[in-house]
Structure formats: C-alpha cells, structure tokens
C-alpha cells in the first residue's frame, strides 16, 4: 500500500490546472481570428475565401459604408482568411475562450467608407482599397501603371472605357 502511494507521488498528476491556472496553447493552435481594423483595406478577399461564410461584406442601405462582419459562431478556424489577406489584417491567435451566454456577442464588425466611381457615381469598392491599389500600381510602375486613372472607375465603366479605346484602335489595325 505504502509502495503504491510512493509510486503515485513519484508519478505526479497529468491533469492540467485549467481553468484555475492559465493554459498555454501550442504555437500552431488555430484559435480566434483577430481582425486588425487599421491594417484592413476591406478588399473582401477573406469574405470570398471563407468557406463557412463566417466573414461577410455588405454594403449599407444608404451606400456610404461597406461593413466587414465576422460571426465567431460560424467560423471553422481554417485560416483561409489569414492565407488570402494581402496585408496582415487578420491573423489566427491562440485565444480559445470564446464561449458566450448571448449569441449577439459572437459578432464583430467594422464599417469602411466606400469609393464612388468618378464617371457614374456608383459605389464600387472601399476607399481604402482603391487608395492602396493606386499606391501599389505606382510602386510597380511600367505598363501596369499606365492606366492608373482607371482605378477610379467602377467595373462597368472600365469595361466601357476599354471597349471604347479598342474601337478607336480597330481602324488603325485594319489598315496595318
């Protein structure tokens, strides 16, 4: 009997102290995705990549803001959002303490001002994204930066613009 108690004392306890003492999760643990609102350009890459549609982007009814929204209740912690983010705006942390008593507490959102098309005035992207892509194009330079003015156009207007430019070019090509 005494031998058994000695053995038990020698072996010690395998049980972790959590929740009375903090627990450290391993570095590869995929926990709560942390959104850095300052670094985010609201490009919707994460919303498109999210397989569970936990992240959504929606234009407000008055069309002045685009709202990034995450529901931690729907998130499957796959890390696709971190994967596709062109900046470091969303990263999976090791935070696992997500349980809530009220479902609304599982939502987090942030609104970003939208940019309007310089031709037709339709909202087409977030202002931050347009600004960012303009600066990236400037830094790339060369032929990519030649059409830098078209950054201010929405997709429809850009298509129209391209078609018009092509129509102007076409007769010259025929002659050549």
């Amino acid at each position: 009997m005494l031998k058994l108690f000695k053995e038990i004392r020698k072996t010690g306890s395998a049980t972790l102290g959590y929740p009375f003492s903090p627990i450290e999760m391993p570095s590869g643990f995929r926990g709560k995705p942390e959104h850095n609102e300052k670094l985010c350009i609201a490009c919707s890459a994460c919303a498109i990549a999210c397989p569970a549609n936990a992240i959504t982007m929606e234009l407000d009814p008055d069309q002045n803001f685009i709202t990034w929204d995450i529901s931690y209740g729907r998130c499957i912690f796959c890390g696709r959002c971190q994967e596709v983010c062109p900046l470091f705006a969303i990263e999976l942390t090791t935070d696992f303490e997500l349980a809530v008593m009220n479902k609304d507490d599982l939502r987090e959102s942030c609104s970003y001002p939208v940019a309007r098309c310089s031709k037709c005035g339709k909202p087409y992207a977030s202002a931050k994204e347009v600004d960012y892509s303009r600066r990236v194009l400037e830094s790339v330079g060369g032929p990519a930066a030649a059409d830098i003015k078209k950054v201010d156009l929405c997709l429809d207007c850009r298509r129209f613009d391209d078609a018009e430019a092509f129509a102007h070019q076409a007769p010259d090509r025929k002659e050549a």
Partner: peptide
C-alpha cells in the same frame, strides 16, 4: 471546440468565469 474551450464553456455556463467576447461595431 478544444477541451480547454469546452471547460471554459462549462465554467461560463456555471458562472465561474466571465465571458470574454462582446459584440462590437466600429467605424473606420
């Protein structure tokens, strides 16, 4: 949910620990 987050869920349900997440909405 990992086992620690399950224990956290039990603790939240029993009122031992407070919940950490709260709904938030910001405007950039």
């Amino acid at each position: 949910p990992s086992p620690p987050s399950t224990i956290y869920g039990f603790a939240t349900a029993l009122g031992i620990l407070d919940q950490k997440l709260h709904a938030s909405h910001n405007v950039a």
